[in-house]
């Protein structure tokens, strides 16, 4: 019940602070890798919130893509290049869509929830493929972003993208950590275990799921906007296609749902593994990556979160 931060989260925040302070000394490839990991981690954070509730979304790329396209369209079609506005727009668009779809999604569970979420993401994919103005599957490039009126070029731009990602990751983890300690937040594992009992206790399962779905969508949108800024290019194949959602679920499994910081660590581990696999086995990198992931899951069935939670003696969810 205490309001004190749990130690793992405190360490993570300290890490993020160090990342912000020493970003300039990191090699550029690492800055870029971490920016993408933080963006992906943000989307996965939303996914793990749903997983806590017993729901697996196979279409979380819907919100990643909405966030990315909202930021990208503002940036390249309307000339609004500010990074903070881009992330805000991504969060807003994804959050509103998640809130609206939430009315429907909150009534579905299990495989029905998974396939329906998949269907919505593929509808967006289909629409984008037919949008010639947005470059169809080739997508389009963002122009160099600014932050609070300061024009950023080259290395500086990359550093600010990383710093923005780190700040937002800190806000998101603290926010979600606190939310999980509110009565509504604490309902998540209860809903997963027994919905009927939750209803008998007098709580509305539908309302709780709706709120969680909206939060997950919002986080997805922020992650998408961050990814668009970090990569500088967006297209439906690497934002909306179902394999993207699959990869997100994969990272969520690697992360586990018991900790709010594990998604970011899992995303960083995944990106690093992928990079190494590309380096050492260009012809069979998928195989190496798959084998590495298989081993991780075999030896850490609860994901990275299981290690973190054991260490910090947080009550199991």
């Amino acid at each position: 019940m205490s309001k004190r931060l749990d130690p793992a989260l405190a360490v993570f925040l300290a890490l993020l602070a160090a990342l912000i302070a020493f970003a300039a000394w990191l090699p550029a490839w690492a800055q870029s890798l971490l920016s993408i990991a933080l963006a992906t981690g943000m989307v996965v954070l939303g996914l793990t919130l749903l997983m806590r509730t017993g729901l697996v979304s196979f279409g979380q790329s819907l919100y990643l893509c909405l966030g990315a396209y909202a930021a990208g369209i503002l940036n390249s079609k309307y000339g609004v290049t500010d990074m903070i506005i881009a992330v805000g727009a991504g969060a807003l668009v994804a959050g509103v869509v998640a809130f609206l779809l939430g009315f429907l999604m909150a009534t579905y569970r299990h495989i029905f929830f998974a396939t329906l979420s998949l269907a919505f993401s593929m509808i967006l994919y289909g629409l984008l493929v037919k949008s010639a103005d947005l470059g169809s599957t080739d997508g389009f490039n963002l122009t160099a972003p600014t932050i609070m009126g300061i024009k950023l070029e080259g290395a500086l731009s990359q550093r600010y993208k990383l710093i923005l990602g780190a700040v937002l990751a800190a806000i998101a983890t603290i926010g979600l950590w606190r939310y999980l300690r509110t009565p509504l937040g604490r309902l998540a594992p209860a809903i997963r275990d027994n919905e009927l009992r939750v209803e008998y206790m007098g709580a509305s399962v539908r309302h709780a799921v709706h709120v969680k779905y909206t939060i997950a969508g919002l986080l997805g949108g922020i992650g998408g906007a961050l990814a668009a800024l970090a990569v500088g290019h967006i297209d439906p194949d690497s934002m909306a296609y179902w394999t993207v959602s699959g990869e997100l679920v994969f990272i969520a499994v690697l992360s586990g749902s018991a900790s709010v910081i594990a998604p970011f660590l899992a995303a960083a581990v995944f990106e690093t593994l992928r990079m190494l696999a590309h380096d050492y086995s260009p012809n069979t990198w998928q195989l190496s990556l798959g084998a590495a992931m298989l081993l991780l899951i075999l030896f850490l069935p609860g994901g990275l979160a299981s290690v973190l939670v054991r260490r910090s003696r947080e009550p199991a969810p």
Partner: peptide, 18 residues
Amino acid sequence: VFVDEAGGTTKQVQEYRN
């Protein structure tokens, strides 16, 4: 040095930096 182009633009941009 060979790199696989598969995997989409996000990965390609990262692999290019690498």
